[in-house]
């Protein structure tokens, strides 16, 4: 890291977590949710991605997903490991959110790496991404549990991260505005979590 650049890296980390990574998560969970309509509906909706010319799709994947996600993940791990969590001494709600944000973040690096290996890398190696691919994965109860924890970690990390984003950019300043933001982001967490878990359960 070059000198006196930390402010920019931290702000970039905060921004990329919401745009595009957070927005992509909402899009991803929405696509997953089509599985509720059954195998055909799911395969049709993810088949739409194949309409995008392959070179353009690759560029989009790298620019919208991989590069911002990798920066957010690796810089986030550095942030998480420079913290000294102290919920034992200060068991306030916000301090628990602080700690959970770091735990879910580190867990998500592992989960997403595994998830990409099981899906995107298998696709690059010739497998076809469709309903049955996910069904085969979550047929294993341990994998299903791993995926549910992963989904909940992601929805928590996004909604709580959105709260922190609003503070970090100076949008919510007063305790009252931050409290309202807590309610709103908690509602976002519940909605995204229900959508995500219902979607994965419809593969079982």
């Amino acid at each position: 890291m070059s000198k006196e650049r930390e402010f920019l890296w931290r702000r970039l980390h905060s921004l990329l977590g919401v745009l595009p990574v957070g927005l992509f998560l909402v899009f991803h969970l929405s696509m997953n949710f089509t599985a509720v309509g059954g195998e055909q509906t799911y395969n049709d909706s993810i088949g739409m991605m194949e309409l995008i010319p392959h070179p353009l799709l690759l560029v989009m994947e790298w620019v919208i997903i991989y590069i911002p996600l990798m920066f957010h993940a690796f810089y986030g791990v550095y942030i998480a490991f420079t913290a000294t969590t102290n919920t034992g001494r200060f068991s306030t709600y916000r301090n628990w959110m602080f700690t959970l944000q770091r735990f879910t973040g580190v867990f998500l690096v592992v989960f997403i790496a595994w998830h990409i290996f099981q899906t995107r890398i298998q696709k690059a190696l010739g497998a076809s991404v469709e309903y049955n691919m996910i069904k085969d994965i979550v047929d294993n109860p341990l994998m299903l549990a791993f995926y549910i924890v992963g989904i909940l970690s992601a929805t928590f990390h996004l909604s709580n991260g959105l709260w922190a984003f609003l503070v970090s950019w100076g949008i919510t300043q007063s305790p009252q505005s931050q409290k309202i933001a807590t309610y709103v982001t908690n509602i976002i967490f519940v909605i995204l979590s229900i959508a995500g878990v219902v979607a994965i359960l419809s593969f079982v």
Partner: peptide
């Protein structure tokens, strides 16, 4: 405070205001 180790390193645990 926009230099290294400055404002942006706050992680919003809000322990400070409680303590």
């Amino acid at each position: 405070i926009m230099g290294d180790g400055g404002l942006a390193n706050c992680g919003n645990s809000q322990n400070c205001v409680a303590a």
